[in-house]
Design a protein around this nucleic acid. Structure first.
Length: 574
RNA sequence: CGGCGAUUAGCGCAGUUUGGUAGCGCACUUGGUUUGGGUCCAAGGGGUCGCAGGUUCAAAUCCUGCAUCGCCGACCA
């Protein structure tokens, strides 16, 4: 490709609405352009990278025995009603009506469509297990799209769905997919981790996420330093410390705290250390038979955070979790948030495991501007239950029993689930078993955020000059940069000759034939992140040499013109 | 969904306080100059100042409403 016949579309200045480095570089390197919030056009260079990711994914899926197909983006509402997700999915499901006013959804995922296909096409246990996948555009009307293609409303996803007679068979395929995913992220040269995950709105039991480690990641991951335990923080169990609750040593006392509404203010204004106090969070309880929701108190240590996911899984708590409105709190308790506590509280009280082992602690007195000190369980608070409802923190013991937890940030690029029969049952997807009877199939599903991987790879591979693509992802394998080509005949002759020889050798080469100054070309090639740049200039031509620059190592090599094509091609294809 | 901020040429921004014919840099076009790391000089093209109302002799500027975009938050009691 010649730059003069291409659209490099590089930008000198960083567009002001790009926050993270991958978003800035994708815009500056001419990979994407925004159409509207969360909607992006892939420019030629960006598309080339996207296709390379797709190809790696496709090869590894095929190798793992999955079969490619392609399903529609537009899906009839009936299917979603059958699975129950038309109601359940919420506003993230973008709904449209056709000209006959029939309801449809733009597919955020394809469990319904594939289950419908399989129940019609697969009739016998002899055809199982089977695993279908597609690489396709997904639509999710995100609450807040951000970070460019990282969290977009329209994005490319690889989704696979497997069907089985037994749990064992599902587990088998699941492990195979787990391995295939590891292969994919390794081939893409990414620093990644598989972590134990929650199943979220997709449903099912066993689940792993694959995270690319990056500071800008939206998820927190907890790792053990002494085993391979790794979990999304929302799923990591906070293990009960071995310590036993000390005996009460203080009397229950009130003290005035008119200006202290937060743990931080209690600390600065009254010297209460965060881990000596507790936070009392009021949420709505599960609805009773009349559909009424009461209030429930959740209590975590002052220096801990409530884990919303753990909380909403408790039977007493409404799901999704919703914090009580201030007026409801005042009506029920007579005090406002900031002065709440468990003593004398007339509602179910759920305390975190780490609160259960506290003695003589501080909490609000359920009277505005007043706190208790010296609170002790079973003396001052008698009716409560103990649950794991907090996020793990750095230094917690690992739930696997080995080592200590550390927290890092990650970008979720893959997620695999053992779905069980959630969809197959709701949609009556069965086959005839060996015994001649109908049996509901068991399912697994496996997703990879293909477009997100492009951004995640940039987060991990950049410097102040731009993107440093790993060989497998670079939009071009080689750039030819002639110095002041229009000034001589030697330069263009050699550049043209090498360009065509590289093309014949099957190298994806970008020939920068613009009438630009050298600095402009160098900067563009570095910004775009092409792994090798071949510099052709008068300076070295008299010795019959050309210069090869490595974008990753910065290394410069002088090569004989006559052997350059063979040598470089060999290095690239290695 | 809540809070904050932004919206002026393709991009980055000034001008808005104090109303008076729309500016700068980059990019683009033309000519010249320069040539191994974002040359320099000159000339030029490009804007219903997000939209709709209002106030005024006069609105990018003041007022009202709306839209779009971004950030933060959506447990932190």
């Amino acid at each position: 490709m010649r730059t003069s016949q291409y659209i490099l579309a590089t930008l000198k200045e960083t567009p002001s609405d790009a926050e993270i480095i991958s978003h800035q570089l994708m815009l500056r390197a001419g990979m994407i352009r925004k159409l509207a919030s969360g909607l992006y056009t892939w420019l030629p260079s960006g598309l080339k990278v996207l296709r390379k990711v797709e190809q790696v994914v496709r090869e590894e899926m095929n190798k793992a025995g999955a079969i490619e197909l392609l399903m529609p983006v537009i899906q009839p509402a009936d299917l979603w009603e059958e699975s129950g997700r038309w109601e359940q999915f919420g506003p993230e499901l973008l709904r449209i009506n056709d000209r006959h006013n029939r309801p449809f959804a733009l597919g955020p995922t394809h469990e319904e469509v594939i289950t419908d296909l399989v129940r019609k096409e697969i009739n016998s246990y002899k055809q199982l297990p089977i695993n279908f996948y597609q690489i396709q555009t997904k639509v999710r009307d995100e609450v807040r799209p951000r970070f460019g293609v990282m969290r977009a409303r329209e994005f490319t996803m690889k989704d696979a769905y497997s069907f089985h007679m037994t749990e064992e068979c599902l587990d088998n395929t699941y492990q195979r997919m787990h391995k295939a995913y590891c292969n994919i992220f390794e081939r893409l040269g990414l620093d990644y981790r598989p972590v134990i995950a929650d199943t979220g709105s997709i449903g099912g039991s066993v689940s792993h996420e694959f995270h690319v480690l990056a500071e800008s990641g939206e998820d927190a991951i907890a790792f053990s330093d002494a085993s391979d335990y790794a979990a999304n923080i929302e799923k990591a169990e906070a293990v009960t410390p071995s310590e036993v609750r000390p005996a009460p040593s203080k009397e229950l006392n009130t003290f005035d705290t008119p200006e202290a509404k937060t743990i931080e203010e209690l600390k600065t204004k009254h010297g209460v250390k965060a881990h000596r106090g507790v936070k009392t969070l009021i949420v709505y309880g599960a609805s009773d038979e009349n559909g009424e929701r009461g209030l429930v108190a959740l209590i975590v240590r002052g220096d801990h955070e409530l884990n919303e996911l753990k909380a909403e899984k408790l039977s007493l708590v409404d799901s999704p979790l919703e914090m009580a409105k201030e007026e409801d709190i005042v009506a029920a308790i007579g005090a406002r948030p900031g002065s709440l506590g468990p003593v004398g509280l007339d509602m179910p009280i759920i305390v975190d495991r780490s609160v259960d082992v506290m003695a003589d602690f501080v909490a609000g007195a359920n009277k505005d501007g007043v706190h208790y000190s010296g609170i002790n369980f079973d003396r001052d608070v008698t009716d409560y239950t103990v649950e794991d409802i907090r996020n793990v923190v750095e230094g917690d013991p690992s739930p696997c029993g080995n080592g200590t937890l550390h927290i890092k940030r990650g970008i979720e690029v893959g997620h695999i689930f053992q779905l069980g029969s959630k969809y197959s049952e709701a949609m009556n997807a069965g086959v005839l078993g060996e015994n001649g009877k109908n049996q509901i199939m068991t399912m697994g599903c496996y997703g990879i955020g293909v477009s997100r991987i492009v951004a995640a790879a940039i987060e991990q591979n950049n410097d102040k000059f731009g993107i440093k693509w790993p060989k497998t992802l670079a939009p071009f394998e080689l750039a030819i940069v002639p110095m002041n080509m229009h000034k001589s005949h030697r330069i263009p002759d050699i550049a043209e000759r090498l360009y065509s020889e590289f093309q014949d050798a099957g190298v994806d080469v970008l020939f920068d034939d613009r009438k630009e100054r050298p600095g402009v070309m160098f900067n563009d090639m570095e910004l775009v992140g092409i792994p090798y740049t071949l510099v052709i200039g008068e300076r070295n031509l008299d010795e019959n040499k050309v210069e090869l620059k490595n974008r990753i190592t910065g290394e410069k090599l002088m090569l004989d013109i006559d052997s350059a094509v063979a040598e470089i091609t060999k290095a690239i294809k290695a």
